[in-house]
């Protein structure tokens, strides 16, 4: 099956972040599998009608995060998820989550509402 990247240029979220999220979402849903070769950044940029530096930026971030890697032929390939990175990632994720919950509580949002929102987000991502 062909994986499609989708962007929305009317959003405030930068395009490179949207491409990053789109690829991560593809990996999570199984549309992108370990070993899949992604389009060269120049071609993907032409298909999306955007600057190729934007695609490169998204690819570079995903490479740093361990979702992708570049081989000797300079192809960008899906590496999937490396379990050795999990502990480090979970620590980072907890910090981010702590900041968000802190902020919400400071605004007086009760923890039950926060829990409901988290459950809703998990359900919507799964679906």
């Amino acid at each position: 099956m062909t994986f499609m990247v989708e962007i929305d240029d009317s959003l405030e979220t930068p395009i490179y972040a949207q491409i990053r999220l789109s690829i991560i979402s593809g990996i999570r849903s199984g549309e992108l599998r370990r070993g899949d070769i992604l389009m060269p950044s120049r071609e993907l940029a032409k298909s999306l009608g955007i600057n190729y530096h934007t695609v490169n930026k998204a690819y570079d971030i995903l490479i740093r995060e361990g979702f992708l890697f570049r081989d000797k032929k300079k192809r960008t390939i899906v590496s999937g998820w490396n379990p050795r990175e999990e502990k480090k990632y979970l620590r980072q994720w907890e910090d981010l989550e702590r900041n968000l919950i802190d902020e919400a509580m400071a605004r007086g949002i009760p923890s039950s509402t926060i829990m409901d929102i988290v459950r809703h987000v998990i359900d919507s991502v799964k679906n």
């Binding site: 062909t2 994986f3 499609m4 989708e6 962007i7 240029d9 992108l32 389009m39 298909s47």
Partner: peptide, 12 residues
């Protein structure tokens, strides 16, 4: 409508 630009990124 949400308006998006889709593009094939793999296996095509």
């Amino acid at each position: 409508y949400v308006q998006k630009i889709p593009a094939p990124a793999s296996r095509i």
